[in-house]
């Protein structure tokens, strides 16, 4: 049941992510996907090792696993989010994407 729920969460999250990246204003790169998938895999492994180690009556190993796998997952996830934005043209970076929708007076002020 635990992994069923995790599967639903991951599936829903993946679906939402794909929907978001289909927007033309969201920058995507191949290495962003690689980093993001690696982060997701490491994150899942961290959860698996964390819960599994508790099932083995090994709380220290559980927390160490969370650190050893979860921390790289967070770092890779952050890089997956940040690097594509750093290298993408500014007009595709979220936050700048609504300029054209603003009133003409505000655009000229910008």
């Amino acid at each position: 049941m635990f992994w069923f729920i995790i599967g639903i969460i991951v599936g829903a999250g993946g679906f939402a992510l794909i929907q978001r990246t289909r927007r033309p204003d969201v920058p995507t790169t191949w290495y962003g996907w690689v980093l993001g998938i690696a982060a997701a895999v490491l994150g899942l492994l961290a959860v698996e090792a964390f819960t599994g180690s508790f099932a083995e009556l090994e709380p220290t190993a559980a927390w160490m696993s969370l650190l050893a796998l979860g921390l790289p997952a967070i770092i890779l996830g952050a890089l997956a989010w940040y690097l594509p934005r750093r290298t993408a043209p500014s007009d595709t970076v979220p936050g700048d994407d609504l300029i054209e929708d603003r009133p003409e007076s505000e655009q000229s002020a910008l």
């Binding site: 490491l42 492994l45 796998l69």
Partner: peptide, 21 residues
């Protein structure tokens, strides 16, 4: 060792994870 683990984990995680269950 810590970074070796992280690297090794990333390398074999997909294969091992896929077979583990």
């Amino acid at each position: 060792d810590f970074f070796k683990l992280s690297g090794a984990t990333a390398g074999v995680a997909v294969a091992a994870g896929a077979t583990a269950k």
